[in-house]
C-alpha cells in the first residue's frame, strides 16, 4: 500500500512539473521568430502571403499570445495535447503511433546493456587481472567514448553495406507475408543494429559498475566466510555476490533512462527508426509546437515509467527493499 502511495505521489509531482514545463516551452516557442505556417508552405512548394495568413487563421496562430496560451493550457487540463499543424493529426494519435517503436528500442537497448554489462562485469571480476578483464575495460571505454551516431554509421556501413546481414532502415518489411512469428522475427532483424548501437554507450557504464561492485562484494567478509564454509566458488559468486552487485547496477540503469531516450533520438536518425526521436527532430525543424511539446511530455513519461520499473526490479532482486517506501 505504501509502495502504491509513494508511486502515486511521484506521478503526481511529475505531472505537475511537466505541465509547468509545457507552459514554459509554449511561451519560449511563441517568442522565437517564425512559425509553422512557413514550414507548411515549404512542404507545399511555396505559398503566397494570403495562403500563409489563411493557414495562421486556420490554426489560431493569428491570435494574441494570452489567447493562444489560454487555449493550450485549457486543452492540457483536459488531457488533450492538441492538434499537429504540420502532420494534420491529433498529437496524441501521432505520438501513440510512434511510441511503440521508441519503447521497443529503448527497453531492448537497456535490457541488452544490463544483461551483457553484468555478465561481462562478472566475468572480469572473477579474474581482475586476466585478459577478459582488460577486454571488458577496453570495450566499456570504447562504447562510452565513441559518439553514438558515429558507432551507428560504422555498424551500418559494415553490417548493412559491406556484409548485408541486416536491413538498412525502418522497423519492418511490410512485404513479408506470414503470421505473428514471421513478423516478430522480421522486426527483430531490423532491431539488431539500432539496439546494439544504443546499448553500446550504456553497456560501458553497467559493466564497469558491475565489475567494481563484484570486486567489492567478493572481497567482503561474508563472501569470504561463505567460501571458508566450503561452498563452491560458482555458488558463492552467483548466489551471493551477484545478488548484491546487481542492485547498484539496476539503480544506475534507472537513472540513465533520460540519457537512453536522448541517445535514441540520434540512433533513430541514423537508422530511420520510426520512433519518437525521428518525429521530434522533424517537428523541431518544422516548429510544430504542439507536437514538440507532446513529445517532451511523452518522453518524460517514458523516463518516469522506466524509473518506476527500475524500482520494481530492485525490489525483486533485493528483498531488503521490499515494504520500504521509494
Amino acid at each position: 500500500m505504501r509502495v502504491l502511495q509513494s508511486l502515486l505521489i511521484r506521478i503526481f509531482y511529475a505531472v505537475v512539473l511537466l505541465t509547468a514545463v509545457l507552459i514554459l516551452n509554449f511561451s519560449l516557442m511563441y517568442l522565437a521568430p517564425g512559425d509553422v505556417a512557413d514550414t507548411i508552405s515549404q512542404s507545399m512548394g511555396g505559398a503566397d502571403k494570403e495562403v500563409l495568413d489563411q493557414i495562421r487563421a486556420d490554426y489560431g496562430l493569428d491570435q494574441p499570445f494570452p489567447v493562444q496560451l489560454g487555449r493550450y493550457v485549457g486543452r492540457i487540463l483536459h488531457f488533450d495535447l492538441g492538434y499537429s499543424f504540420f502532420y494534420n493529426d491529433p498529437v496524441t494519435k501521432l505520438i501513440l503511433e510512434r511510441l511503440p517503436a521508441t519503447l521497443l528500442l529503448v527497453f531492448t537497448a537497456q535490457i541488452l546493456a544490463l544483461v551483457v554489462g553484468v555478465v561481462l562485469g562478472v566475468i572480469s571480476a572473477r579474474q581482475p587481472n586476466g585478459i577478459a578483464s582488460h577486454f571488458v575495460t577496453m570495450l566499456a571505454l570504447f562504447g562510452y567514448s565513441a559518439p553514438v551516431f558515429w558507432t551507428g554509421i560504422l555498424l551500418l556501413i559494415v553490417f548493412s553495406l559491406k556484409i548485408p546481414w541486416f536491413p538498412v532502415a525502418g522497423m519492418q518489411d511490410v512485404t513479408i507475408e506470414g503470421g505473428f512469428v514471421v513478423h516478430a522475427l522480421d522486426v527483430l532483424r531490423h532491431l539488431v543494429l539500432p539496439a546494439i548501437t544504443l546499448a553500446s554507450i550504456f553497456l560501458a557504464l553497467y559493466s564497469r559498475l558491475a565489475r567494481a561492485t563484484m570486486l567489492e562484494t567478493l572481497g567482503s567478509d561474508y563472501v569470504r566466510t561463505a567460501k571458508a564454509k566450503g561452498l563452491a566458488e560458482r555458488h558463492v559468486v552467483y548466489k551471493h555476490a551477484l545478488k548484491n552487485a546487481l542492485s547498484p547496477v539496476v539503480t544506475l540503469a534507472g537513472l540513465q533512462f533520460s540519457a537512453v531516450v536522448s541517445g535514441a533520438v540520434l540512433v533513430e536518425a541514423v537508422f530511420s527508426w520510426p520512433g519518437l526521436g525521428t518525429l521530434a527532430f522533424q517537428s523541431i525543424i518544422a516548429r510544430d509546437t504542439p507536437t514538440i511539446l507532446g513529445i517532451l511530455f511523452f518522453s518524460a513519461l517514458v523516463v518516469i515509467v522506466g524509473n518506476l520499473l527500475t524500482d520494481l526490479v530492485l525490489r525483486m532482486i533485493d528483498p531488503r527493499l521490499r515494504g520500504r517506501g521509494a
Binding site: 512539473l17 516557442m29 533520460s258 531516450v261 536522448s262 518522453s299 518524460a300 523516463v303
Partner: peptide
Amino acid sequence: MRTTEFFQVLPTLLFSMVLVALF
C-alpha cells in the same frame, strides 16, 4: 530536489535541441 528530479526526467537532448532550434 524536485526540480532536479524534474530535469532528470526531461530527455536532455530533446530539450537542448528545442533551445538551440528556437534561439
